[in-house]
Design a protein around this nucleic acid. Structure first.
Lengths: 128, 128
DNA sequence: CTGGATCCTCGTAGATACTG
DNA sequence: CAGTATCTACGAGGATCCAG
């Protein structure tokens, strides 16, 4: 494996302790500002560039382009160019991307379950 | 709820489409460089500041301090000050933090399952 | 329509030094 | 031991213009 775990004690078990580098990698993939948004919008069906752009407002062209390229690079989305006029490019999730979508949905579920309480905690904490 | 979903079409269902703001909030919480690391190290037991510092190397004092404060603010960890000499502060996960730990472990699981393939995809993609 | 290229700004993390 | 204060550097992301 190409992931050298650093020098933390690896005696512990569980996926958390197996390698921080792994987790960081995933988080850097989906932790940026737009990847999750795009993945979600690609969840149901294949979509075109400007379609994603409208759905993901206020994303900029630049960032959508960069986000899609990153996702494609990691094998999470496919990019299909139809050589028509006007040009048309379709994006869709790969099986790997769909599996990530599941994880993201769990994450979103946790967020939904705890959002209100977290907001309460924040106001309570800030009231000092 | 305090989360006004923007103007994307909300006809779709599923936790993904329910509110981008929610997901972004969680991702900003755990998506930073150190929160997940700290949460994982707090998974088993309560730990002290410098203990976390050593386990989370190469984190800086400043970032550990800021990370813990953020987690405390969101009600994910507790901070207990023992008024002894030398001073001693213990950190531990709250129930909410533990529930997040579960999600994080799932995420880590996905990362472990797909890390190798993702790396392959990247090299393949970059070979152009 | 689908992007690439460029410039610029603003936040965030790191280094370092100091305090209760 | 457990932090805070300040200063700086770096990089993600936004705005804009240009091209196939």
């Amino acid at each position: 494996m190409a992931y050298p775990v650093t020098e933390t004690d690896d005696t512990a078990s569980g996926p958390c302790e197996q390698g921080r580098a792994l987790i960081r990698d995933v988080l850097e993939r989906i932790g940026d500002k737009w990847s999750v948004v795009v993945i979600c919008q690609l969840g149901d069906t294949t979509r075109r560039f400007n379609e994603l752009r409208r759905m993901s407002e206020p994303i900029t062209q630049r960032m959508l382009s960069a986000t899609l390229r990153g996702l494609e690079r990691d094998g999470l989305v496919t990019r299909t160019v139809h050589d028509t006029t006007p040009p048309r490019v379709d994006y869709a999730l790969t099986p790997r991307g769909i599996s990530l979508l599941q994880v993201v949905r769990d994450l979103a579920g946790w967020a939904g379950d705890n959002a209100a309480d977290i907001l309460d905690s924040r106001t309570a904490f800030d009231a000092r």
